[in-house]
Amino acid sequence: MLRSFNWLDLESLLRGAVWTIVLCVTAGVAGTVLGLLLGIASSSPSRVARWVASTYVLIIRGIPLLVIVFFAYFGIPLMFPDIDLSAFLTAVIALTVFATAYMAEIFRGSINAVPHGQTEAAQALGLNYARRLRFVVLPQAMRIAVPPGIGFLIALIKDSSLVTVIGFVELTRSGTTISNLTAEPILTYSVVAVLYFVICYGVSRLGSWYENRSGSRMDTTEAENQPHALQLEGV
């Protein structure tokens, strides 16, 4: 029976939005960390590491996300019959595999964009490869990676709607269900669109905030009273 759109529907859309956020934060963080490692590998002096990283990127970027989601859904139970993976974890794995490839390319490009003179200055001081990376190259590469990284994460949030095909209930899936129940697709999907927009807008703002914070510090500010930028503990 058809019924009208009510507050309970809004609540389930919000619940769907929360799942979209949880899914994207998990896959986004995992993809960023793994992508950073692959990005370092693909800009490293080791030929083997470069080959592994570039092959991964080449393969994953050549496959539609939808197909990766299907591979995760059907492939993981085939490979590990004993593990009963939830739809959520399957979705996280698929999105992480996908995000890793794109983040790896973003980090590779950012690392290569740090002027070579920086590496040479660090070499001349006697810093080995790991220390050059940790204290000189990566802090600068991270800043370069923020705009394209944020751009990719926003795309990922929207692409995450593809995981509805394996039955995971996130924002788009909630919308489809409610639209079918109420026969008010325009209203329902308008709410869905607004919720996606709000999530993406938040991520955008976070990115600009980070850029402004680190950018203004490096360019001209004397910053006499700021705490030390260099963390002298660790490594």
């Binding site: 040479e120 810093l127 000189v136 930028a229 260099l230």
Partner: peptide, 21 residues
Amino acid sequence: HFNLFPHLKVVDNVMLAPVKV
């Protein structure tokens, strides 16, 4: 071209190698 580390303060540029290496 100097090649100072732009993300570090002047003092941290000078301290980096002695502390880390």
